[in-house]
Design a binder for these strands. Structure first.
Length: 894
RNA sequence: GGGCGUUUAGCUCAGUUGGUUUAGAGCAUCUGCUUUACACGCAGAGGGUCGGGGGUUCAAGUCCCUCAACGCCCA
């Protein structure tokens, strides 16, 4: 074994071994435990957010697998409609080809080719991380099975009247040429202008009403001017007509509360086809919307001479012309909220179009109740509010997208009913297949019905919403579905609570009558060291695969877990992975050290022969088992706490204390040691092995590779990944009194080391040590274990006394129950010693004073619980003794 | 404008239901160490009164109010 642990050598080997052994598949007949992966986009590359998200899932999966659950971590990828289509379009663009040149069928074929070639990248990256997904069950949202589930859901929702087609104002991305859901629109604060434009009255062109707008280019879609009914300036104009500049149209002045007298001129143009507020106003006043723009965001025929101009060019031209005509009254700088597309970044255009919608209220109500009742709970709990606030307005979900890559909507227009052409009023049928559609159309419209399928595809999230059951074979009644639905924990980030989590909840309830998971764990966001989001454009990302190459997957995982405190964002920099790497190296070296002695020396523990340190470390192990087990158990999920408990135990207790104490005994030379020493060695080695075996099991969810390697190195044949989780109650664990004795001895070591440090005595230089106990009882307790002290520091003569006197030229220290003295003739500086002791005395007196004050407070003694008061009294008493002792020690110095 | 989060040692963060010591850890800093597992190491040390103000309580970093700064989400 090398003194440096090198992860590169073993990670691939173990991953393959696990897969070959089928270790990732659900095993046995235990209770099921299931996690479905948030399917990464098939175009994706692993980023730090993925690394965190998947490490968390893997920790849980491995933990539960070790506990004997029939564990399934269901993997898969998402077809990510817009993202994937864009990637392939960009690739084609390099060859000078547009998707329109290829046509729909060819283009979709190209995307599938792309998926075949590059879609596996992220899966391989997840493997590098150590993810123990059941890859034999890998799914893709556009697989035949999942597509079947999509069609089934669409048909059933339609049958139940929950899907409708309608003309609504939607968010339109001119660049991608598709509708967007509200959540796909990001509003960006931008510097803009507020223009005031004069609209002349129809019956008196010399008189004007001045309207204020941020979007003058939509004026050809204006159908009215609205003023507030209470606005004295305009009351007399209500009901009159104005002439829309640049057109022959006249439009009415109406009264509507939407017009805010305090904003701009108090009069606003109403453009129902291109503004969400105006759309509502239009509905209230029965005004027919006028579409003034094409889908590519150029103006249409309504705009007269501006027809065909792109929207922002048209804006400039219109404003220039208005100004020339003397119709531009004012320009004001203003910060506006610009709606932009979350994918393309283009300015989103509200547009009146026919789209497909899901009627949300009947679905949202039970989904809200699921969280309200606690059947589904968020960790941290505060995210339940985000979920509720999104669902509660019951806004219908626009599910159609004008893309080619995705699930084509299973609706067929019966064009034979409308002269073979698709029109607004063409009837349609919704069905699971074209055959089913044809049958239905035939029964309704006769044998000559001609069908054309809807061209739109479904929103990507429509299929992700079904993920917890579509991946398990629904709508089939599969054994997997039977066993693994509902799943247990969903691990994701806050960004997709409504895109995804809410939609899975209502879909699960609707189609399987059960919530899809009982716990939603929302982890923090990974930020760079300055606290900024990592992004490609900023170039501040840290590549997990690069980090895995440099530090090892275990180090990356462990570092992330120690940083994962509930719901907090994580400021990350590569140095943080050093913690993980150093920790792996520490463990590696502890094993390396004992390994040569392990072979022939393991035997059952004989209680009578166990050393105090043995009993102590076994008890500390038990405590660690408890902490880790409780911390990882949903819904507690305190990953950092578990990781830290393991770090402390391994480094401080197991390595720094236990191993150092037992070092000499363990390394006794088999050939020359006495029989007694050999017996002691066997016991020490066996304790070491016992602790190590359980420790690597506890660590395995966090650091799967190194722990598996160690298990093999110490000669265990079976795989760690499928072994079993330890439980507390290790035979030989020390009792409370033994633990106290050990802690006292460690305390004595601490004090001695501190004194030696003060006098900068090199570690190799021995000093004598006198431990003077206040009573014989304590001395008898400590006496058999004095080697604990002498093994942890270079001690010359060690004396255990009762009320011993302080030797000349010695430094003094206090422990609860006695003094220690270190003779330092020739080294001791009385002045330094005095300073040291005076400082300690000051602290002790300060503390004593606080205690006294507390206990003199009658209301404290009266109101506080008896055990708290009693505790304070004990503390005061021991502090008093401490002060007395320090005074004596100081007096001794003269 | 509404909601949520954060503010504790130079830096990054713990501190679960208010009551274990004089508020902890890692990194950084300083001192001393090639002690036969580990310098990705060992042994020490210094450093904060917990963003400001007010309140509840016998007792508050921990609960309440308020102000401020930073961040996120929504409008």
């Amino acid at each position: 074994m090398d003194s440096r642990y090198s992860p590169q050598d073993i990670e691939e080997k173990w991953y393959k071994t696990w897969e070959d052994a089928g270790a990732f598949k659900p095993q046995g007949t235990g209770k099921p435990f299931t996690i479905v992966i948030p399917p990464p986009n098939v175009t994706g590359a692993l980023h730090m957010g993925h690394a965190l998200n998947n490490t968390l899932q893997d920790v849980l999966t491995r933990f539960k697998r070790l506990q004997g659950y029939r564990t399934l971590w269901q993997p898969g990828t998402d077809h990510a409609g817009i993202a994937t289509q864009s990637v392939v379009e960009k690739q084609l663009a390099k060859e000078g080809v547009k998707r329109q040149d290829l046509g729909r069928e060819k283009f979709v074929e190209k995307v599938w080719e792309w998926k075949q070639e590059y879609g596996g990248r992220i899966v391989n990256q997840l493997m590098r991380l150590g993810s123990s997904c059941d890859w034999s069950r890998l799914r893709f949202t556009m697989d035949e099975g999942l597509s079947k589930a999509v069609r089934e859901v669409f048909v059933r929702l339609h049958q139940d009247g929950l899907i409708y087609r309608g003309t609504r104002l939607i968010n339109w991305c001119p660049k991608l040429q598709t509708a967007l859901a509200d959540e796909e629109v990001e509003s960006k604060e931008t510097k803009g202008h507020f223009w005031s434009i004069k609209y002349p009255l129809a019956d008196n062109p010399e008189e004007f009403i001045v309207v204020s707008t941020t979007r003058p280019e939509t004026m050809f879609g204006d159908v009215a001017v609205a003023v507030n009914a209470e606005d004295e300036r305009y009351k007399h104009l209500i009901g009159k007509q104005v002439k829309l500049p640049g057109t022959d149209r006249t439009i009415p002045i109406i009264a509507d509360e939407h017009a805010d007298p305090t904003k701009g001129t108090g009069a606003v143009k109403i453009t129902p086809a291109h503004d969400f507020n105006d759309y509502e106003v239009g509905k209230r006043h029965n005004l027919k919307p006028i579409i003034a723009m094409n889908l590519d965001a150029t103006l249409n025929h309504q705009a007269g001479k501006y027809a065909g101009m792109p929207r922002f060019e048209a804006r400039k031209a219109i404003l220039a012309d208005l100004e020339a005509a003397g119709l531009l009254a004012a320009v004001e700088d203003r910060v506006i909220q610009l709606p932009t597309c979350y994918r393309s970044g283009d300015v989103v255009e509200p547009y009146l179009l026919d789209q497909w919608f899901v009627y949300m209220k009947p679905l949202a109500v039970p989904a809200l109740e699921a969280v309200e009742s606690g059947r589904t709970r968020f960790v941290p709990a505060r995210y339940a509010k985000i979920y509720r606030d999104w669902l509660e307005p019951f806004k219908d979900w626009c599910i159609s997208r004008q893309l080619w890559w995705g699930h084509q909507i299973p609706a067929w227009y019966v064009v034979s009913e409308t002269d073979g052409k698709r029109r607004q009023d063409t009837p349609f049928v919704v069905a699971r297949s074209v055959e089913e559609a044809q049958a239905e159309a035939t029964s309704k419209y006769g044998a000559h019905a001609v069908l054309v399928q809807e061209e739109d595809v479904l929103d990507t999230w429509f299929s992700s919403a079904l993920w917890p059951f579509s991946t398990l074979g629904w709508p089939g009644k599969t054994p997997e579905l039977e066993t693994h639905y509902p799943t247990d924990v969903l691990v994701t980030d806050r960004g997709i609570i409504y895109f995804w989590v809410a939609r899975m909840v209502f879909s699960g309830i609707k189609f399987l009558e059960k919530e899809p998971f009982h716990t939603v764990y929302i982890h923090g966001t990974i930020l760079d060291e300055k606290g900024q989001r990592m992004s490609k454009s900023k170039g501040n990302g840290i590549d997990p695969i690069e980090m895995i190459g440099k530090y090892g997957a275990d180090a990356v995982r462990f570092a992330l877990m120690i940083l994962t405190t509930e719901g907090q964002d994580i400021k990350l920099s590569p140095v943080k992975f050093e913690t993980g790497r150093n920790f792996a190296n520490k463990l590696w070296n502890a094993v390396r050290f004992v390994l040569p002695h392990l072979q022939d020396n393991r035997e059952p523990l004989r209680m009578g022969e166990l050393h105090l340190a043995d009993r102590w470390i076994l008890a500390r192990l038990d405590e660690t088992i408890k902490t880790v087990t409780e911390s990882l158990e949903p819904p507690t999920l305190r990953f950092s706490e578990a990781a830290q408990a393991l770090y402390r135990f391994t480094w401080d207790d197991f390595c720094s204390s236990y191993l150092e104490i037992r070092k000499r005994v363990i390394t006794a030379d088999d050939a020359t040691a006495t029989l007694e020493a050999l017996a002691a060695k066997k016991q020490a080695v066996s304790v070491f092995a016992t602790v190590l075996e359980k420790l690597i099991t506890l660590l395995h969810p966090f650091m799967p590779f190194i722990t598996e390697e160690i298990r093999q190195a110490i000669g265990l044949q079976d795989l760690l990944i499928t072994s079993s989780w330890p439980t507390a109650g290790t035979p030989g664990a020390g009792n409370a009194e033994e633990m106290a004795t050990m802690e006292l001895l460690l305390k004595i070591v601490d004090i001695t080391r501190a004194i030696r440090g003060d006098y900068t005595i090199p570690p190799a230089q021995a000093t004598d040590l006198i431990i003077s106990c206040d009573n014989a009882d304590l001395r008898e307790r400590l006496k058999p274990h004095a080697d604990v002290v002498s093994s942890l520091e270079k001690v010359g003569a060690l004396k255990l006394e009762v009320n011993g006197s302080k030797p000349a030229f010695s430094a003094a220290g206090l422990f609860p129950g006695g003094h220690i003295y270190i003779p330092l003739e020739g080294i001791l500086d009385p002045v330094q010693e005095k300073v040291r002791l005076t400082k300690e005395l000051g602290k002790a007196e300060g503390f004593m004073a606080t205690q006294e004050k507390k206990l003199q407070n009658e209301s404290f003694v009266k109101s506080a619980p008896a055990d708290v008061v009693e505790g304070e009294r004990t503390k005061l008493q021991s502090q008093k003794e401490r002060v007395e002792k320090l005074k004596v020690a100081l007096a001794d110095l003269g």
